[in-house]
Amino acid sequence: MEPDFAESAPVRLVFTAEVRADPAAVYRALAEDVEGWPGWFTAVTSARPTRDGGGREVRLRGGARFQETIVSARPRERYAYRVDETNAPGVRAMLEEWRLSPAGSGTRVRWTMAVDGAAPVRLLMGFAKPAVGRAFRDAVRRLDRRLGSPAT
């Protein structure tokens, strides 16, 4: 699966928010401090880098597990990973992309969850969009507080 799946997937959930930290600090939290994710994204119960940083293993509340491969890591701009293995039934393909861009004195964060799966998965993703959006907004607020000071 190529990184452009984020733009072409049958189901795309896209959310944006702004933080005070600069893009470099946000990128470090996303890509370099993988084990720190549970401290700001409460849906994540554990995360750890694998394959010398080329992959990730992530566990979510509710028991979902993911083995992922990093498909794009452009500091201060983009961090994306595809799901190679999951215990979530019916998921055929999944990719998540974080895009960062300067916004005022901080960073605009855009998160895309791109999914293909059986009809029940596609339907469930549509129903889950409001809850996933709340989880994203809460996570970004926590990340903003965790990163602390405004961009300089």
Rank of each mutant, 00 (worst) to 15 (best):
T107P: 12
G148S: 06
E7Q: 14
E97C: 05
V19Y: 07
E96H: 03
A29G: 03
S149L: 14
P130E: 02
S8F: 00
S46V: 02
V19F: 13
Y81V: 03
D4G: 07
A139N: 01
R59E: 15
W98A: 07
R142I: 02
E7S: 10
A93W: 09
M113S: 10
R141C: 08
E57Y: 07
A21Q: 02
G133Y: 03
D138Y: 07
V71M: 06
E77D: 04
M1W: 15
V83M: 01
W40K: 04
V44E: 00
D22K: 13
E18K: 14
L147V: 00
L13V: 08
P75S: 04
F41C: 09
V44A: 06
A43R: 06
V132S: 15
R141E: 13
E35V: 12
E85L: 07
R82N: 06
E7D: 14
F41K: 12
G63I: 13
T16M: 06
G63V: 05
F5Q: 10
V19M: 15
A119I: 13
P49M: 11
R74A: 15
S72I: 01
G39L: 11
N87Y: 11
V58T: 05
V34A: 14
R20T: 11
T112Q: 15
P150A: 05
F5T: 03
A25M: 02
V109M: 15
Q67H: 14
R59T: 14
S72N: 13
W37A: 05
E68I: 08
P75Y: 02
R51I: 03
Q67R: 07
R92H: 11
M125P: 00
D116A: 03
V26L: 09
A43N: 09
D4C: 08
T42C: 11
A131F: 14
A103Q: 10
M113R: 08
R56G: 15
A131Q: 12
D116Y: 04
V34L: 13
F127C: 13
Y79V: 00
G133Q: 12
A29C: 01
R61M: 12
T42H: 08
I70K: 01
A135F: 01
M94I: 02
D138L: 15
V121H: 10
R28C: 06
D4I: 00
D52Q: 02
R28H: 13
R134C: 07
V58R: 05
G54M: 09
M1V: 08
